[in-house]
């Protein structure tokens, strides 16, 4: 896939740090073919279902130095495991709260629903995440 970089993306590339983003994704939801995104260091973790993303996985990703963690789940009503995506959303909400308590900021973790093959959506999500990190800065634990 060939993309032309927008001015915004160029400016993101010039940021002081190169953010590390870990993405947990249901293999039914997204197929991450963008591991070599120039703006950030991406680490994709394929899950059989977004609901299998345990709380501790999310926290350990931060321990490993991620500046942001994303969970990509199937759209509502489209989960092959009935409501795995909803359970994942609730778990993410819990860990977000934990991150607030820890002092890392719950904003570093987000969940999105994406349809398989919708690369534009994934790109948009990444862009938003990078923009969000402008304010949050690097992971203070790494």
């Amino acid at each position: 896939m060939v993309t032309t970089r927008t001015a915004e993306e160029v400016s993101l590339a010039k940021r002081a740090f190169r953010p590390k983003i870990t993405v947990f994704h249901c293999f039914n939801a997204a197929d991450l073919a963008f591991e070599n995104n120039g703006d950030c260091e991406l680490k994709a973790v394929k899950m059989p279902c977004s609901s299998m993303t345990r709380e501790v996985f999310l926290l350990r990703a931060f321990e490993a130095g991620a500046d942001a963690v994303l969970v990509l789940a199937c759209p509502e009503g489209a989960c092959r495991h009935v409501s795995g995506n909803l359970r994942a959303a609730r778990r993410v909400a819990r860990v977000k709260k934990m991150l607030d308590e820890i002092g890392l900021g719950g904003g570093r973790l987000n969940i999105f629903n994406v349809t398989q093959g919708d690369d534009t959506a994934v790109e948009h999500i990444l862009k938003e995440t990078l923009a969000g990190l402008e304010a949050l800065g690097t992971n203070p634990v790494s």
Partner: peptide, 17 residues
Amino acid sequence: EEEVATLASALRLAFGK
């Protein structure tokens, strides 16, 4: 076990910060 792992990770992050 699950809660032990989660709490350990959360505390490591909290102290690490």
